[in-house]
Simulated scan of single mutants.
Amino acid sequence: MPAEGDPGHLLILGGTTEARRLAEALERTPLRVTTSLAGRVGAPVLPPGGTRIGGFGGVEGLAAWVTAHRVTHLVDATHPFAERMSFHAARAAELTGVPLLALRRPGWVPGPGDDWTFVESLDAAAALLPERGRRVFLTTGRMGLHRFAHLTEPWFLVRSVDPPAGERPPCLEVLLARGPFGLADERELLARHRIDVLVTKDSGGDATAPKLVAAREAGIAVLVVRRPPVPEGVPEADSVEAALARLTGFRA
């Protein structure tokens, strides 16, 4: 708990729209806010308040930073698939006694007309691809391209803010672009590249959902990688508003 008269210091493990919105919502409050970004994207959009970019050096490094900077509240608002960082946050919270909240937007749910197959991993998606289509729109992030590098077929389209590095499928086209992308954009992209299967992670949210709507309209099959669970015992909020309510409780 913060000392008397000290409103406290919130560390947001960020990189998502929700992390930025939480920092914006707290901008005019006495609570001091620092957002940490992994630094994997060039020229990121910085939220208000303090920021730090780069890793902490594992659980011990994060715990040391929390202690040294007198962090009184910790919010894990990383990408739903940042499993390692979420584990580090949970363990650091245990070590320091700082309350932790996971901010996770709800996952996607298929609707009428959707042709979705849920898989447990990128490897499972790669195993299914040869029988699902010949022209793939791969939207699982540039960091996981090596999981598909062994596939000589099908042809892949990858869209990324920064050029991918490392192993990649031999039949690959990279489109450098920064979202969000509207429904008209996604319709045009799927048609222009003659996409017949879409691979995505269950990231949730509205920012990247138009590709799913466009796939439904075009009758395109979708492979959806399930998200990992939040570490056991960590309370969750499914919206910025819910997170703000929980933070009020932390400050009580």
Rank of each mutant, 00 (worst) to 15 (best):
V199P: 07
G249F: 00
R105T: 01
G8E: 06
L212K: 10
T208D: 15
G205W: 11
I12C: 01
P154E: 10
L103D: 04
R132H: 09
G204H: 12
G107I: 03
P44Y: 08
V75M: 08
P163D: 13
E217M: 11
L62M: 15
L175H: 13
I195L: 00
G179W: 10
V225F: 08
V158S: 04
P231G: 08
A25V: 06
R52W: 02
R226A: 14
V158P: 03
L13G: 05
L74S: 06
P106Y: 13
W65E: 11
L26G: 02
L128Y: 04
G249Y: 02
P130Y: 11
T208N: 14
L138I: 12
A19M: 02
L31A: 06
L74M: 14
F137E: 01
R216L: 05
R192V: 03
D114L: 10
R227M: 07
R40G: 07
G141M: 09
E186S: 08
L95N: 00
A125T: 07
P169I: 05
V197I: 14
W108C: 03
L26P: 01
L62H: 06
F148D: 03
F137S: 05
L198P: 02
R142Y: 03
M143C: 01
V174A: 10
A23I: 01
R159L: 04
H69D: 13
A242M: 09
E131A: 15
L151C: 07
H69I: 02
L122R: 05
T29W: 05
A218D: 01
T16V: 04
V98S: 08
P99I: 12
W108Q: 04
L190D: 05
A126I: 07
I220L: 12
L129D: 04
P228D: 01
L183H: 15
T17K: 06
G42W: 13
A237N: 10
T16N: 08
F87K: 14
F156W: 06
A63T: 07
V45N: 02
D76F: 03
W108T: 06
V33P: 02
D206Y: 01
R21F: 00
R91E: 14
V234K: 00
A245N: 00
H146P: 00
G107S: 10
V59N: 06
L176E: 14
V59F: 02
T17Q: 11
R192L: 12
F156R: 09
E173F: 06
S36R: 09
E153A: 13
A25L: 10
L10R: 05
V197R: 12
R251N: 02
P169N: 10
V213M: 13
A126S: 13
E131P: 00
V119N: 09
G144Q: 12
E153N: 01
K211F: 09
D76Y: 08
A221R: 15
P80E: 10
A184D: 15
V199T: 07
G249C: 07
L145M: 14
A237M: 11
L128P: 03
L13N: 02
A127R: 15
A165T: 15
G141W: 11
M1R: 15
I195K: 03
T117G: 05
R194T: 08
C171Q: 13
A215Y: 05
R194I: 00
P170R: 13
A242D: 14
A218I: 04
E217K: 13
F81N: 06
G97K: 05
G204T: 11
R192C: 05
A242R: 15
G61T: 10
T17G: 15
R32T: 04
M85H: 12
